[in-house]
Each structure stands twice: as structure tokens, then as C-alpha cells.
Design a protein around this nucleic acid. Structure first.
Lengths: 145, 145
DNA sequence: CTGTAACGGTTGCGCTTACAACTATCAAGG
DNA sequence: CCTTGATAGTTGTAAGCGCAACCGTTACAG
């Protein structure tokens, strides 16, 4: 049956498969901690930035605020981060990793670095760098919604 | 705080964002039909191949079989596909689109073609083609699990 | 001030999902 | 035949998710 478009060339479809496969493979690195992908992303962003509000994490990760809200709840319950009211605006709260959170972030971060360099090896370093550029442009383009 | 790896360079993370953004944007094209992404993928693959078993769709789309099973149930209920027992093996069932299914697939396929060519325009055609190649290699590499 | 709109974050609810256990069927060896 | 093990697909259940509605707070126009 002829089609107007070829599914095997459809970018959202290919992106999804690549993302799903790589994320699922890397998830092996933290699933034994009972951690969700969203929780890992929150952890990683806090590890990188030091401290952020929930809203900032939403904007950075392009994730719905309820998803972040619940991930933060679980991380707090697990003792990996703590909240502090922001002076001057009682609506926001500043999120920071606890010592345990920093340790977890560091450990998973090392695994991530290894995983990523494995991917780059299979792709070739130049192509991996090009891929990063293209993905960034795609993301920047899609931001405006 | 220093990190062993840079989240902004982490491929699974970038792939996820790009995939999420593009898929979410395209989902506008079929969400008013009450269709999920998985259902659309089943529909598109059947539209392309004519007829497939559930297991084949699992392998092609790299999706869990329970997810496919339920998507097929919903599509059948919506009258977009029908099942037929395969002669010679009573375990399998062959899935085929109904007329309504083919029409839906055709309509969404046209939207998909438009959406995809929009993406390729913003990326540049050469880079889009290169992206497809890299994603294919990433997917092929990840298959073996 | 006061009303109104916007913002940050949480909660309720129905639906989807993942994971494991299950049924039914087939294939191969003894 | 009969057993053992693989395969195709479904189902039970607990958990995560998206969406809309919500509360408390802030900004600002009149």
C-alpha cells in the first residue's frame, strides 16, 4: 500500500525510538534505586545548577509542572533534596540537593558519563557532536509553544 | 558544583527533549480523534505494511507487547482495524486496517508529511538526511537487547 | 486601597503504562 | 503420545501521567 510519507523517514518517529532506546538502556543505571526518569532529570539539573525552583526545572526540562512537583515530592521523601522558601516571594521554593542527593547525583553522573562516551564511540565523535548541534536546534525551534 | 558530565551534552537527554517536543507538536494532528501516540504508530505501520501481527509491530516499533495489545484493542473498538486468525498457527493473529482505518491513516499521513517537511526545512535538507542516518545507527545499535 | 489578572505550586481524577503472571498454542526430544 | 520449553497475546495491579481545577501569593490598574 502506498503512503504519502515514509514512516522510516519520519523524524518524530526516529527520534522517539532513539530516545526511548537510549533512555531505557541508561535507566538500568538507576532503576535499582527505585528512581524515575523524571526524578533523575531533576536530580541531574540540581546537581548541575546548585539550586533551582520547581518552575525553573519545568522550563529547563520542558516538563509539565505536575510531573516535576511529584518528582520533587518523591526526592524529598527519599531525603535527596530539601526545599527552602525564597525570601521576597512566598510562592516559590528553592530546591537544593542534600548530601545524600549530591552523592547519588555524583554516582549516577559517573555512569552517565561512561554511557554517553560509549554512545559517542559507536557514532564517531564528529558525528556525535553534529548530532548534539542538530538536536539543540530542533529543541530551540520547538521551545516556542 | 562541578559534574563529571555535562547534562547539556548528554545524548539521551537531548534525544528525549527533541523527541518529546516533536511528537507532542505532531500529536496535535490526531489528538482530536482521541488517538494516542501508540495507536497512531500501530496505524501507521499497518498502513505501510498492509497487515502485520501484534508481535511484528512490537519488534518494529520497539514497544512493549502489552502496550501494543491495548492499542490494538482500542483501534479495533474504534473500527479502524480487524483481526484474523493466521492459518497454521492459532496463536498469532493478523491485523489489517479497515476502510475507515485506511482513511484515517491516509489523512494523518498527509499531515505527517507536511509536518516532517516543515522540520526538514528548519534543519536544512542535508542535515535532516544526516540526522536520519545517525538516528538509524543509534537505533540499530540499541536493538540488540 | 481594591479588584483582577497572572504566577508558583499542589491536588483530584480518569487514563495509560510497566511489570509480572497467566492462558493457549506450538515445536522438539524421548 | 507426553513432557519440557519457547512463543503469541491478554490480564491484574500498582504506579505514573496529563489535564483541569484549585489555593495562596504577587503585581498592577483604576
Amino acid at each position: 500500500m502506498r503512503q504519502d510519507f515514509d514512516l522510516d523517514q519520519f523524524l518524530p518517529y526516529l527520534l522517539n525510538q532513539a530516545a526511548e532506546l537510549t533512555s531505557a538502556a541508561f535507566q538500568e543505571s538507576y532503576r535499582d534505586r527505585g528512581m524515575t526518569r523524571t526524578e533523575w532529570r531533576v536530580l541531574a539539573n540540581l546537581g548541575k545548577q546548585g539550586s533551582l525552583t520547581a518552575g525553573q526545572i519545568c522550563r529547563i526540562t520542558l516538563t509539565d509542572k505536575t510531573k516535576i512537583s511529584r518528582a520533587v515530592q518523591r526526592l524529598e521523601l527519599a531525603g535527596l533534596l530539601h526545599r527552602a522558601r525564597v525570601a521576597g516571594d512566598r510562592r516559590q521554593e528553592s530546591l537544593t540537593l542534600t548530601d545524600a542527593g549530591r552523592i547519588a547525583c555524583h554516582q549516577i553522573g559517573k555512569l552517565a558519563a561512561g554511557f554517553d562516551s560509549g554512545l559517542r564511540d559507536t557514532l564517531g565523535h564528529a558525528e556525535a557532536a553534529a548530532l548534539v548541534q542538530v538536536l539543540r536546534r530542533l529543541i530551540a525551534k520547538g521551545q516556542g509553544r
